[in-house]
């Protein structure tokens, strides 16, 4: 299972004019990982599929405003430095 949002810590200078955003995020939606879609994947029931915009749970990745999550985008750094690991609090 992949995470559909990654976070990293940008450089913060004491001379930056705006209050720093400690953690920045970017989206990595499922189509980046799926490759050629295999046959026989699970499907949403038709009514739900029309509601969500896709028949395939594997392609369903709703977006929410990362700035609206609890403070600083809601992402706490978990100490790993590979630039892609975060915990959503």
């Amino acid at each position: 299972m992949y995470t559909y949002r990654k976070a990293y810590r940008p450089f913060v200078s004491p001379n930056d004019p705006c209050p720093p955003m400690w953690v920045k995020t970017y989206e990595t939606p499922p189509q980046l990982y799926l490759g050629f879609q295999p046959y026989g994947m699970p499907q949403f029931p038709p009514m739900e599929a029309l509601r969500w915009g896709t028949l395939w749970p594997a392609l369903f990745a709703p977006y929410s405003n990362p700035y609206k999550q609890k403070r600083m985008g809601g992402y706490r750094w978990n100490g790993q430095m590979n630039g892609s690991r975060y915990t959503n609090s």
Binding site: P29, G53, Y63
Partner: peptide
């Protein structure tokens, strides 16, 4: 909904 359709189209 429209964003999700972009995901599917890209795929």
């Amino acid at each position: 909904f429209l964003r999700e359709r972009e995901v599917v189209h890209s795929q």
